[in-house]
Design a binder for these strands. Sequence first.
DNA 1: CGCTTTGTGCGGTGAGAGAT
DNA 2: ATCTCTCACCGCACAAAGCG
Length: 256
Amino acid sequence: MKKVSIIDVAKLAGVSVSTVSLVLRQKGKISDATIANVQAAIRQLGYVHNVAAANLRASTSNLIGLILRDFSDSFSIKVMASIVQELEKQGYMVFLGQPQDEGEHLERCLLSFKQQGVAGVIYLASDAASPHLPALIRQCPLPLVAVSQSLLEENGNLVMRDNRQAAGLAARYLIERGHRSIGYIGGRQESLIRQQRLLGLRSALVQHGMSYKEESAPACSDDTRAASQATRHFARAKQHHHRPALPLAGRHAWLH
DNA sequence: CGCTTTGTGCGGTGAGAGAT
DNA sequence: ATCTCTCACCGCACAAAGCG
């Protein structure tokens, strides 16, 4: 059971291999009759276009190396899913790498990408405490796009989320609706996302003549339970703090 | 004999030539 | 002008040939 090649198709269709190649890629001017002929031969033989060989000849690659730093981060997973979907649409295949650290593991990961001849690398950063990419990524000679949930102080191709602006927008939204006691819940203390959002919150509050208090922004780990516990705790403390006569509902709000 | 150089095949593509 | 074909080549592995 020999593998079917473009030569077999050409023989069966009674044309040359280059004509088959042109039909496969829908290039050049090929008569409808020949196209139908070739396609019938392809169907009959069950031929499958060998993209690896095509890439070899054309010195191209349809492989993209995707590095996902944090598999437990649901946001990164969603970003990855979208990336894979879009790349597949454009005829690319994704190689997934999950280095355990930013040193030796990452180096091995990049090496295997190079060995596979990837066209480029997409780096999905984790919510690290550092606003910088790992040195190995920065020095990577392959075309690179870095995706981060927080702002990075880097040059190059970056896709980032502006947490500072987002928190500012959210805070302004609440202020415009009359809320005057605005808190922020979430993120571990050292989280860069948290720090950037607090900056946005603080500057929005200050702009509206309100003050930002440290105790209005309790930190907690990222999981839902921790967040809900922190929220309950926070709400209770708030109620305690104010006189019961104060209409709490509609006057207090917190970002999460 | 052991090392190095050269040739060939893998499955395709691209430029340019050839046939109608 | 259209359509199709010939030939060299991609990067690597493996085999055959060359050589001291």
